[in-house]
């Protein structure tokens, strides 16, 4: 039972029920589409990056499992206001939390709320659910256009 409560922490269930920054973003200047063909998860990410290279607004739409939806929701909160470089660095730390070397990232505190996903580590098949939004963000920031898939 520990694995289960570690995975589906209240914060994750809450963001699954009521995802933040959910919807379209009419003034987006970056966007990306993420797809996990194995489970049918799909998400569209809208980002507005300022001239100074800062993510000043971000939103997403789509459907998926609790992990993928909560991850997208928490990601939008985490990267809003960050520079593109900071967002990419955060993705690196988030990835380490889920699937990096044993022991996770060097500084888990730097992940803030995203640390609620630490339980995913015990369920390797679900890592893709948690990282779909981040891969899509990476692709959108890099110029995007192409669909990002987990496969």
């Amino acid at each position: 039972m520990t694995g289960l409560t570690d995975l589906y922490q209240e914060v994750i269930l809450d963001h699954n029920r009521a995802p933040r920054n959910f919807g379209a973003l009419p003034d987006a200047n970056r966007s990306g589409i993420g797809h996990n063909p194995l489970c049918g998860d799909q998400l569209t990410l809208y980002v507005h990056v300022s001239e100074g290279g800062r993510i000043d607004s971000i939103a997403f739409q789509g459907k998926g499992c609790a992990i993928s939806k909560a991850s997208a929701s928490l990601m939008t909160e985490a990267v809003k206001g960050k520079t593109v470089e900071e967002a990419e660095a955060l993705f690196g730390r988030f990835h380490d939390l889920l699937a990096g070397p044993e022991g996770g990232p060097a500084d888990p505190k730097a992940l803030g709320k995203l640390a609620v996903f630490s339980g995913v580590r015990e369920f390797p098949t679900r890592v893709k659910c948690a990282t779909l939004a981040w891969h899509t963000l990476h692709s959108a920031l890099a110029g995007g256009g192409k669909e990002t898939t987990t496969e």
């Binding site: 039972m1 694995g3 289960l4 995975l7 589906y8 194995l38 489970c39 049918g40 998926g64 499992c65 609790a66 992990i67 369920f123 098949t125 679900r126 659910c129």
Partner: peptide, 19 residues
Amino acid sequence: HPHDVGTVLDTEGVAVRTG
């Protein structure tokens, strides 16, 4: 979502296919 169902079942030792 079926994947969430599958994961909860997995923690109970129940192996089903989801997808």
